[in-house]
Amino acid sequence: MSLEEKKEFLAEVFELEEEEVVETVILNDLETWDSVAILSIIAFMGEKFNKYPLAKEISKFKTMGEIIDMMNESE
């Protein structure tokens, strides 16, 4: 899966423009870094990569880059 596709998904989840989805974004600065975002990411991981992370693992992430890294490592 291309980086663009991942960013497209994350833009939708966080209700951002695609160009706003960059690795350095601090998740705690986003109003949409919530349980809906975490559940959507978990569902995406299962759907696209057959991986099943838990909410408590994802909620530890500090930056957008960590989410993208998790996706990259799952391919």
Binding site: S35, L39, I42, A43, G46, P53, L54, A55, K56, S59
Partner: peptide, 24 residues
Amino acid sequence: GDGILRCKNHIWMEGSKVFNFVQK
């Protein structure tokens, strides 16, 4: 320790684990 107040008389659900279980 997740900031959510719970009471032991109610059902506790680990939502993401349940979600993953259902999808798997």
